[in-house]
Amino acid sequence: MKELARLVLVLTLIAAGAGLILSLVERATREPIAEQRRQETLRALSAVLPPADNSPDTDTVSLVVGKDRRGRELQRLFFRGRKGGEVSGVAFKVVAPDGYSGNIAIMVGIDPTGTVTGVEILSHAETPGLGDKITEAWFKEMFKGRNLDNADWRVKKDGGEFDQITGATISPRAVVGAIHRGLDFFKTHQDEILASSGGSGQ
């Protein structure tokens, strides 16, 4: 019995010490981590949006884009860049679930008419050296200036006009498809997204 008490006591003390140290470290790193994540979003936003003089990461609208398999609502955040109070561009994240390996997360920037101003790949797990060429500048540049009316949103192999990557058709096809669906969603909901509420959440 005395032996058992000793086992419990020592293990409890070790766990308590570990908990104390972890809570201190967590408190010290909480701010820098939040700042790093914010900076990452800001970098992606400034890469895809036309010049803006507000902070787009706080001027957002959230819309329901669909339901997941369990019937819960899926939200999508729309970041609005403004120039002199007027909306100059909208950025939103789309996810391509049909890449070669895993999801591809893409930040798409468009102007208020629905023409693409920039595309940034946020995360992916495509094959290094093949599918990961979707992160290269020439690939992302292809989408600039395109909208639903002036482009056929398919890769060339499928009869569209976007270059695929030699040896990797699946990744570009997934990206093109995801951006296309994002533009479609914007077109049907643009009134809600552009509605000038002066920035929700402010």
Binding site: V10, L11, V25, E26, T29, I33
Partner: peptide, 24 residues
């Protein structure tokens, strides 16, 4: 008799410290 769980708790704590600091 409790050395393995003790070691794991100690190691896991330092790993979490590394993970938080690296992300920050």
């Amino acid at each position: 008799r409790v050395r393995i769980p003790s070691f794991i708790v100690i190691i896991a704590s330092f790993v979490t410290v590394v993970q938080l600091c690296m992300e920050a």
